[in-house]
């Protein structure tokens, strides 16, 4: 009798690999130029409702600080900007991407973007700070 697994193993030999290669246009700046010369894997679209890096509209914010009360990771800090207005400052490296601040914002000044590659050498770099 043929073992059941052998059937699926032979079938698998003639199918395409299931794994998607890392999309070349997502790699850090310094290596993408190098990779562009070679074969580029097309990126897989991220899901429609994907919760990626947050974006913050500084001018729209009214400084109600509701987001500070609901943030589970204490990412959001209350600050005063140059004009003396109440604004927020976010440390994205600590963010858990739950999106609760987006839901609670009364003026919708916070959004989530499909950006997911946030690796950096400096935790406090410009890319990882929103203000």
């Amino acid at each position: 009798m043929i073992p059941p697994m052998l059937k699926y193993l032979i079938k698998q030999l003639f199918t395409k690999p299931f794994t998607n290669l890392f999309p070349a246009n997502r790699v850090p700046n310094d290596t993408s130029a190098f990779l562009a010369k070679g074969k580029i894997t097309p990126p897989i679209p991220v899901a429609e409702n994907y919760r990626g890096k947050l974006s913050y509209e500084h001018d729209k914010c009214i400084g109600c600080y509701s987001c500070i009360r609901v943030c589970p990771a204490n990412v959001i800090k209350a600050v005063t900007d140059k004009d003396g207005k109440r604004k927020i400052k976010m440390d994205v490296s600590k963010c858990t991407f739950c999106g609760q601040c987006i839901d609670v914002c009364p003026v919708k000044c916070l959004h989530s973007t499909p950006e997911f590659l946030l690796a950096d050498y400096d935790k406090k770099s410009k890319n990882l700070t929103l203000e």
């Binding site: 899901a47 409702n49 994907y50 919760r51 858990t96 991407f97 739950c98």
Partner: peptide, 22 residues
């Protein structure tokens, strides 16, 4: 695990994340 990928993708499209649904 190859077959498991499908349900992870479904979770992502419904909730926004593969693992911590939120």
């Amino acid at each position: 695990w190859k077959n498991r990928e499908k349900v992870m993708d479904i979770c992502e499209s419904i909730t926004g994340n593969r693992v911590h649904y939120g």
